[in-house]
């Protein structure tokens, strides 16, 4: 089977300082990869470098495109990469307001990607927006409300709907549950888990919350100071951590 995404010795430097260094991994269709580590360990840098938001200094990000098979996205022209960014790829930001248009209604937010790929039928766009609001458990009576009138959890769910409406195959998530209280977090995780399974999505989830990766991720990478220090199956890494830092991380989780 061809990996959906192959990352090869990806390196991003901030001047003399390391953002992330020599990261290698393959992601297969339907697989969810978690990236954990403390603040400043380079996990968001890695995610942004893979998603093409910040060009990396070295390395390859090979994506299995629908049309031409595996291609290095860093060598693609910008229109191609941006096209990928609104069709097969999705990016869920930690703060919903980074990923939403706050002055545009919920329906417009969801419809934007459809219109960006050529949707020109108002009725169809609206029907799909309503359908997706339902799937992320937002009442479709709120389709014309602006996200600024939504709670934090609803905004995050709206952001997910807006990203998944074009049926992407790969979703990048940066701390999708950060800043939400635990009960809202639990429902969001539930939702994400069922969407990932239903749609057969592949996802890369960056988080510092080990419980989130335990629930969502099949595989786990642990980062420290820009390097990947350990990787493997999630349960294996969390139950039997090998690297000293991973052991510290796992034992630091508060027990209730």
């Amino acid at each position: 089977m061809t990996p959906l995404l192959q990352v090869k010795s990806l390196t991003k430097m901030y001047g003399p300082r390391i953002g992330c260094k020599d990261v290698n991994f393959d992601l297969y269709p339907g697989e969810v990869m978690g990236i954990v580590g403390e603040s400043g360990s380079g996990k968001s840098t890695l995610l942004n470098a893979m998603a093409g938001h910040h060009p990396p200094d070295r390395g390859e990000v090979v994506f299995d495109t629908r049309a031409d098979g595996p291609r290095d996205t860093l060598q693609m022209s910008e229109p191609e990469r941006r096209m990928l960014g609104r069709t097969d790829w999705a990016f869920v930001h930690q703060h919903a307001r980074d990923g939403l248009r706050m002055s545009v209604s919920a329906g417009g937010n969801i419809g934007e990607r459809l219109m960006a790929v050529g949707g020109r039928h108002y009725g169809d766009i609206r029907a799909q927006a309503a359908d997706w609001l339902g799937r992320v458990e937002i009442s479709d009576a709120r389709i014309d409300d602006r996200p600024s009138a939504f709670s934090g959890g609803m905004q995050q769910r709206l952001q997910i709907a807006r990203n998944l409406v074009t049926g992407p195959r790969l979703v990048f998530m940066d701390e999708p549950t950060g800043g939400l209280d635990v009960s809202v977090q639990a429902r969001l995780l539930d939702l994400l888990r069922s969407l990932v399974r239903e749609m057969g999505l592949s996802a890369i989830i960056v988080t510092h919350d080990l419980a989130v990766v335990r629930l969502l991720a099949d595989r786990l990478m642990v980062m420290k100071d820009g390097h990947v220090v350990e990787s493997g199956l999630t349960d294996q890494v969390l139950d039997d951590p090998q690297h000293a830092y991973t052991q510290l991380l796992v034992s630091s989780v508060l027990q209730v």
Binding site: R86, E112, A116, G119, R126
Partner: peptide, 12 residues
């Protein structure tokens, strides 16, 4: 696509 978002908002 964004231009049509404006028209969408008008209709909605």
């Amino acid at each position: 696509g964004l231009m049509h978002v404006k028209l969408y908002e008008d209709i909605s």
